[in-house]
Design a protein around this nucleic acid. Structure first.
Lengths: 189, 189
DNA sequence: TTGATTAATAGACTGCGGTCAAGTAATTAA
DNA sequence: TTAATTACTTGACCGCAGTCTATTAATCAA
């Protein structure tokens, strides 16, 4: 057993090239206008190599587009003396901002999750659940500081917040700072 | 000009048969497991006849599944002396109930709207917008009766309510009376 | 060097949604 | 009866996601 047991070693470059090509093509042309074949061709790799690494197109795009998202500005900064209300609002503004780049892709991934329960599971684990936890944690903290009545249920409020965001996204409504402010105001006022 | 100008008349039976077959097959097997060809075959009609009437599979299913929904229990009953809070809660419970039949189909239609802007438009006009208006009207009434502070924005609250519902639906969470109660409680308490 | 093992390639294949074009059937007007 | 018009049928066609199989390439162990 052990790591590199035997056999031809995996070409790490191929995986990187596929993710890079997928990212570039999808952002340029939109999820539905980019074929698996085109991504493989742009990466200079056989189509089947792609399927060796990811089960579906959606799995590849999820990883390609959102592994870089983990880096910049995902988690809200807990180590400030700002109040939770402000923390939440700026967090939402940041998320909404990023969606100007990847909003269309995210819409396509949510759609893909609806007819592929395998992808649904990884999408939920890799995207949905972590964001739910961030907001819930922030709300719990708001209860600690007394900004939010302890009678409210943080999970439910988290659902309300994410729901508003998904609803606007999927119906192509505006996701701007004003909307972030309005959500926050409805939670805290 | 005028109605039946000339030419072979439309066979109304064909349209009905297609909707009936679509309804039955989709509820039995799920949206993604029913092909256009299967629906046409079950209706005893050519595939092209289907495309004479509807632009896409989604358009047909939307009409087939939700024309009967217009009938039973869509609008909340405004002519009672119940308070708006109760009205909203029972309305939500009714909607959630119906989703035990057509929830999967609705998920598929929301997904379809994400990669077809033509269908997106008709789905929004025929399904999304009417329901938004129902809830908004109910909330305005709640402000009239004083149940809801007039400082709140009914449109935003409507988005929060629908969003929570969509979020649960798309993430396959439970849509039960307890959730309806929790939503209402977060709006009115 | 030889074998076993695993990766990568190439290409055929399936089923799907949707389009297109040619032919046939049913109706109205002349 | 004939011509025009419109609906319906039939079957070919396209591009796509995903599967399958046979072949070739790279590595380790004997």
């Amino acid at each position: 057993m052990g790591e590199g047991a035997s056999g031809r070693p995996v070409n790490a470059e191929a995986g990187k090239a596929l993710k890079a090509a997928a990212l570039q093509l999808v952002r340029a042309n939109g999820y539905d206008n980019v074929s698996i074949a085109a991504i493989a061709k742009a990466a200079g790799v056989a189509r089947q190599t792609l399927y060796n690494r990811w089960a579906t197109k959606a799995d590849l795009i999820l990883e390609a587009v959102f592994e870089e998202t983990h880096n910049y500005a995902a988690e809200p900064d807990f180590d400030t003396d700002k109040d939770c209300r402000t923390l939440l609002e700026t967090f939402l503004v940041n998320v909404f901002n990023h969606l100007e780049i990847d909003g269309d892709t995210l819409r396509a991934l949510i759609a893909a999750a609806q007819h592929d329960s395998g992808f649904q599971a990884s999408f939920h684990a890799g995207f949905v659940k972590p964001r739910e936890r961030m907001i819930t944690a922030l709300l719990v903290r708001a209860q600690d500081t007394g900004e939010l009545p302890s009678s409210r249920n943080p999970e439910t409020i988290s659902t309300l917040i994410h729901g508003a965001f998904w609803y606007r996204l999927l119906n192509r409504g505006a996701l701007n700072p004003a909307f972030a402010r309005e959500i926050v105001s409805n939670i805290f006022d």
